[in-house]
Write a protein that binds this DNA or RNA. Structure first.
Lengths: 342, 342
DNA sequence: GATCATAATGAAAGCGTTTTCAGTTCAAGA
DNA sequence: TCTTGAACTGAAAACGCTTTCATTATGATC
């Protein structure tokens, strides 16, 4: 905590009142060039810088945005691969506008707890909130924010009533594109290894998978639609199950790249070839998709765009609150690589 | 920004002075049970919660720790794989002690800029600083922090004079262990594909590589000691160069897992086998090391431990400043997998 | 019953700003 | 010379809390 000079010190040195100094600092009109210069000299001389706290006390604003990162419980390292790009782009955008960022990480269980957000916001005086979550944002959370009249944006999910400004990815569309791509290559028997379906995006991917099959008139099999944790082990284990029974899928759509990598291990281990015997596709376009053999067809989410957009919308809301609520669904790009090329 | 009741409101309702209410809230002694109960009733009734800003203004403390994340420029996604575990463990530790965390990300160039930290700390009133960096922390940064008497800890590097409390990893020791492991398997001709040597840990890995070779009486070759960016492409490209000339290495030590994955690609592509023809080892134990074929021998850094330790040391420094400065070097664990087993 | 320590309380100063309101200065117009 | 209004400036009141210091109530001790 710096101590340094105060307004009063500057005022004394410049031979003016604190009010005038304040005016100079905040660039208000009606200060004569002479006094302005004198004050600025004094500021430099004393190496003065305003006390943010005192300023906040009177203005009622802190210049701080709270970034709440809601996570799986226990934490799944693979989610980091898209969390940090988001944090990064949000950070850069907000910094450029002179906002400070305070982060809070919590499990989705904590976040759903009735008192959590309340306690957090009571302890922390922020001007806006950005919620990064893969879970539905519960009603009481929304109402807590609304009653505080605190501008906020939800990134990665939404609330039950679509009352919040939120940004999501078109998971269903992406999966549909993957299925179409695989069908065009002649595949008929599809398997799906998903992540935890309590995560909104994993659920969307599952739904997208099922409805795409239906749309294209392809059969679905209960035993080829499985879920687990979002990791290599799940992919490996479930793929082994797939391979042990009938029908055997010729194309497997996975909830993320790690799962897909696990599935590939199981396939290769069995002496089968990818994609000749079985095609595999992942999701997220992490580095994993580029180092497995063969390289993995996957989906690239517009993370940077999403982060910046979230920050932008929050800024908009901050400057003119209570405008029309909106939901934005960002399209994703499918990246076709060897694992699905026939 | 919540408005809500103030101390004065509570005092009025409870029929006491604000001083007494303050005492109750802060758990000071010398408040009779009767008045204490009355005050607490009033607090509940008004749903009062203290204004953090006002409190900070008078106490001079904010309860906020600044976490400065210094990054490669431009940003290298693979570094995220160890940044977020660190952030996570630091966050969890500090939260448990009721601290809030403000993050600032910047490139190492920005961070080295004379005015950067100054401007940052002037704008932001924090109680302590945690610097996560892979670059030497310059003297003027240290002196800025020292003159402000701001407790701080450096995680991942140090300053030229070892004046700061800092935590590092035993990169050299880890590389030495890898080289020993490979030598024991009979390898004689070693190659190294490192990351940017301006990064402290990459430089330490290089130095560790060279001194281990020397220690074990193994020859070094200029043309087999290369660097590049910390990514798959570098590994691929440099390995191709290695394979195109003489002598050809039988063991390649890489600066991180991504580089190693690239090297493996180049080797396999050439029709050579891993580890029979060439052994490859990486660093960081990311998910990449588990999905390449064969699985990659690598080094696991004690990230969680490092994060918690950093937070702990900062707390120590906060409670009793100016104790003996210390430098902690954490040992790393080598994880032996198929890519190096003969 | 007088004395004295101790516990309990309140008044008020202060933390470093912003902002309102009133006052002063000064040039221009009458 | 007198008015008038605009431009400039300062005094003082907030903002919501903590903390010191003085004061009063409460027992305990002689």
């Amino acid at each position: 905590m710096q101590k340094g000079a105060t307004l009063k010190d500057v005022a004394r040195l410049a031979g003016v009142s604190v009010a005038t100094v304040s005016r100079v600092i905040n660039g208000h009109a009606n200060v004569s060039p002479r006094t302005k210069a004198a004050v600025e000299r004094a500021i430099v001389k004393l190496n003065y810088s305003p006390n943010t706290i005192a300023r906040s006390l009177v203005t009622g604003r802190t210049g701080i945005i709270s970034l709440i990162i809601v996570q799986e419980d226990p934490i799944v390292p693979s989610t980091w691969s898209y969390e940090l790009p988001l944090v990064q782009s949000i950070h850069d955008y907000l910094k450029a506008q002179d906002w400070e960022i305070q982060i809070a990480m919590c499990s989705y269980r904590e976040f759903q707890e009735p008192g959590f957000l309340h306690r957090y916001l009571t302890r922390n005086t922020v001007d806006g909130v950005l919620i990064m979550a893969a879970w539905m944002v519960e009603r009481h959370v929304v109402s807590e924010l609304k009653t505080r009249q605190l501008p906020y944006v939800v990134l990665g999910s939404h609330d039950p009533d679509y009352e919040s400004i939120c940004i999501e990815y078109d998971n269903e569309g992406a999966i549909r594109a993957l299925v179409q791509h695989l069908r065009d290559a002649g595949h008929q028997v599809f398997g799906h290894i998903g992540g935890p379906t309590h995560q909104l995006h994993m659920n969307q991917r599952l739904q997208g998978f099922l409805s795409a099959l239906e749309e294209f008139g392809l059969p679905t099999w209960q035993r080829l639609t499985k879920f687990g944790d979002s990791n290599v082990e799940t992919g490996y284990r479930v793929m082994q199950e797939f391979l042990a029974g009938e029908p055997r899928p010729t194309a497997v759509v996975c909830g993320n790249d790690d799962i897909a990598a696990g599935a590939m291990n199981a396939i290769t281990e069995k002496g089968l070839r990818i994609p000749e015997d079985i095609a595999v596709v992942g999701f997220d376009d992490t580095v994993v998709s580029q180092v497995v053999t063969p390289k993995l067809t996957t989906v690239r989410m517009p993370l940077n765009k999403a982060g910046v957009l979230a920050a932008q919308l929050l800024m908009d809301e901050l400057s003119q609150p209570n405008r029309e609520r909106k939901r934005i669904v960002l399209p994703c790009e499918i990246v076709i690589r060897a694992s699905s090329l026939s």
